[in-house]
Design a protein around this nucleic acid. Sequence first.
RNA 1: GUCCCGGUAGCUCAGCUGGAUAGAGCGGCGCCCUCCUAAGGCGCAGGCCACAGGUUCGACUCCUGUCCGGGACGCCA
Length: 570
Amino acid sequence: MNSQSTPLKQQLRELIERAMATLTQDDGPLAGISELPPVQIERTKTREHGDFACNVAMQLARLARAKPRDLATALVAALPADPLVAKVDIAGPGFINLSLSDNAWHQQVNQAIAQGRDFGRNQNGQGVCVGVEYVSANPTGPLHVGHGRAAAIGDTLARLLDAAGWKVVREFYYNDAGVQIDNLALSVQARGRGIDPENPAWPADGYRGDYIQVVADGFAAGETVDVDGQHLVGSGDFDDLDAVRRFAVGWLRREQNDDLAAFGVQFDVYYLESSLYADGKVAETVDALNQSGHTYEQDGALWLRSTDFGDDKDRVMRKSDGNYTYFVPDVAYHLSKWQRGYVRAITELGADHHGSLARVKAGLQALEQGIPAGYPEYVLHQMVTVMRGGAEVKLGKRAGGYLTLRDLIDEVGRDATRYFLISRKSDSQLTFDIDLARAQSNDNPVYYIQYAHARICSVFRQAAEKGISHDPQAGQANMSVLTDEQSLALMIELSRYPEAVESAAEGLEPHTLATYLRELAAAFHTAYNAHPILPADSPERDARLTLCLGVKQVLANGLDLLGMGAPEQM
RNA sequence: GUCCCGGUAGCUCAGCUGGAUAGAGCGGCGCCCUCCUAAGGCGCAGGCCACAGGUUCGACUCCUGUCCGGGACGCCA
């Protein structure tokens, strides 16, 4: 494993910090300022402003009672010389603009090649354990597109956090015992007895989809289901509702797992709601809430005074019929995450559940067990609508045309499905255009990015056919022959990758990585068109091929974080 | 009525924890393959960042209010 070298931004930040330290000495302009603001280094929008800009002089202006530009001048004068930095300017209201040497970019390319799959990874998480929960669909039906969005977002988050040095546990939580499961069992039983949803004898809240018939047929035919460590055999005895229930749950669990596997999504832990009752976690939670004094009895029910913790009204914990409301096991479940050592817990949910967030957080606070106020962190996604042929595809469970995640994967492919579900900010509603996702054309960003990777592979194949060998060492030594604008722009784009990974992980915003990869691919395609990669001149050729190797590595790393393939040929 | 999320080019959307002249793709118009995959590239046109205030050196970004669209508000899960 290569030791990760210090990221560019951080190296520059340290230079500025050293300059600031100089100015705090004795009677320097910053002397006597106790709290210096954190130094922010950011990429500039145009190279006219250099490569990186620092706004610290403006931030310090008031504290130091000095003009921003005067401070900037003093900082620049105190800035230590460094081979990374070619030029320093002061511009606008007091920006310090840093222009890097070409050699700085060459180093980034070389690092991408040398570090390989590790390039872009960082140690920000310091190996601390974070639980990431997502999908968590109840086993009452096939996964639909909304679950697909949850899976794509959650899985990419998990990969990003892993790349950022956290110890990630992927978790799937499901209810295997509640009212909805009863409805499932009753539905399968009814189908098994030849009752269909149009029949007056159909269960009131039954699941009407055709898949119920399939499950019933399997149960009748004595099919077997192996899932979650269980081996289930359909007995065909529809009077044994408990057996029907176990079989149906197992069947749908297996179905969901198969679909998720086809989507490239796997979990470390499957957590059953029923286990929270079986192992006393629910009772422990209720006792702790009672003991902490945040509960009261009223109207024959037990209430949590969640308004003490920011909820807008108190919530019933135990109904007057003696059963717990769903949010009690929810609190117990998140307590178990804390107790299992998840220092951070991230819960990915559909935004239609946002109403439950406040009460779960309130419940965790009311336990008074030192769980941080921000626990768990929620990432919510908005609804997905699907378009085909310019018309909306209805997704309702009741309708016959039930579009499942599996249907979508089969129709447009795993990579395109993942990309489209991840490419938008999770906070905004998403329109999934099946025709666009299927298009094998430049309308489709999936191919655009993957094609960049395939194109590089193709160039190396061409080189091999022509008997041209690539000397990577010579390439690295000769990078300075690449002075054209497009190559430089490509190197700079490549150098942004570690920052893209870091900020996507930190902000829990996987879509920003998708955006970055499109920009990297664009920079590559531009350079590809501007200059032949296999010119006769061998120093230049070696350098261009070396740059291609670096870009190829970054594309592969980035696509992998999105759970997508990096094809060598298209 | 309360709460959450959106409102940026004709369309679909980016805009990184407030930064310098607002970005990309598609669509429109005009170009580029005797050349490594044209699944590509180049150029032009296109904007009161929903609206009105406020905060400050500086606001698409933060705060308040209004309007529009979507969602959530149960002793359902």
